[in-house]
Amino acid sequence: MPELPEVEVVRRGLAPHVDGRVITRVDVHEPRSLRRQIGGPEAFVQAVTGARVARLERRGKFLWWRLQDERGDELGEALMTHLGMSGQMRVRGGAAEAEADAGTVALSAPAPRGEGPASDPHRHRRIVLHLDDGAQVDFVDQRIFGGLWTSALEQDADGLPATPDSIDDLLPADVVGIGRDLLDPAQDREAVIAVMRARRAPIKALLLDQSLVSGIGNIYADEGLWAARTRFDAPGESLTRGRARRVLDGAEAVMHRALDVGGTSFDDLYVNVDGRSGYFARSLAAYGRAGEPCPRCGTIIRRSVLQQRSCFYCPNCQRKA
């Protein structure tokens, strides 16, 4: 948490504020948020200061900013963003916000907006990126599991556009081993199914394997399995091709619905760039609902543990085999 829908909501919300903007200054309040940066905080500040943001791209839970020099030529590297367990990207000020206030730009159009109280970002502000229009992008992270860093661009192995929004096959080196996600039309769904059916591992463990299919975490794995009437501990090799496809299609459908309402928020650890929470939590069928009736058959939802992760399922309508 956040998972694919939440990161995509952040990408859509952030893009109008940063696309084409120049990063003029970086304030580092917490060096641990730059622990993945080769060369440390000084190298990070030097790499991104003065760079222009060409566009934002995402694969799975990874978000990155393609960077250009002052002439508009690509720098061959990207500013990586991973939200971890509690990371947020919050925007303050700038031209886009001013235009929205004046009624000339609708910032809510590119991204679904949820509802709920905005969290106070001041205490856990770790990195601040200042833009040339006066906007400030805050990286806020209570638990400091996420972070920012730069990563060189490499060609993707399949030669296809790196993401649905990409104009080429370049993606950060740190994302090369990450599988395409369920919202990527270039994903080879049949190849993923073949790998799943060749393994003995529980299906939920396979869904959480980011090298196989990215972006799925505990929430959308449980919801996708509920939609496909499949238990979390069913071995991959026990699934028919049709059931394996229904598991993936179910997870994809759930994530699309979550996107429509701004993602899933249980507290103020995940919010959009304007501080609003998503409200897909009220639509969950299984995750977090232990002791409540299954929306489909009325049987009480149970909680179990697999590889130190909670699993929520209906013992009646979710089959192991």
Rank of each mutant, 00 (worst) to 15 (best):
D233Q: 02
S211M: 13
L225S: 01
L207K: 03
I219E: 07
R197A: 09
I216T: 02
L208N: 06
S211N: 13
F232L: 11
M196S: 08
A234T: 15
Y220E: 08
R189P: 01
A191N: 07
E237Y: 13
G215H: 00
A228R: 04
L225A: 00
R231N: 10
E190W: 09
V195K: 12
I219K: 11
S214T: 02
Y220M: 12
L208S: 05
A205E: 12
N218R: 01
P235M: 13
D209F: 01
I216P: 04
I216C: 09
D222I: 06
K204P: 12
E223L: 08
K204F: 07
Y220K: 00
A201W: 06
L206E: 01
D222F: 01
A227G: 02
K204G: 04
L225Q: 07
D222H: 00
E237K: 13
V192A: 12
A234H: 03
R229Y: 07
A186F: 12
R197D: 08
S211W: 05
S211Y: 03
T230W: 07
E223W: 08
A186M: 11
L208Y: 08
A198I: 07
L207W: 00
N218M: 08
D188K: 00
M196Y: 01
P235I: 12
R231H: 14
R189G: 08
I216A: 10
A205T: 15
S211Q: 13
E223P: 08
P235V: 08
R231K: 10
Y220Q: 05
L212Q: 03
R229I: 06
A221C: 05
D233H: 01
V213Q: 08
G236V: 04
R200Y: 09
R200T: 11
R229L: 11
D222V: 00
A201K: 15
G217V: 02
G217R: 10
E237R: 15
L208M: 14
D222A: 03
A201L: 14
R189Y: 09
I219M: 10
A221H: 06
A221G: 04
L208R: 05
A221K: 07
I216V: 14
R189E: 13
A186N: 11
L225C: 01
A221Y: 03
F232C: 07
S214K: 04
A194F: 08
A194C: 08
R199F: 02
A191W: 09
S211L: 09
F232M: 07
A234E: 03
D188R: 03
A228T: 02
Y220A: 00
R200E: 15
D188V: 02
G215K: 03
S214D: 08
A227R: 14
Q187E: 09
A194I: 05
N218Q: 06
D222Q: 06
D222T: 04
I203F: 09
L225D: 00
Q187A: 14
S211I: 00
A234Y: 03
L212Y: 00
A234L: 00
R199V: 05
I203K: 05
I193M: 11
S214I: 03
R189I: 13
A201H: 10
G224A: 06
R229C: 14
A201D: 14
E223R: 03
E237N: 13
E223Q: 05
A194G: 15
D188A: 10
Q210Y: 09
V195C: 09
M196L: 14
V195N: 10
A201M: 14
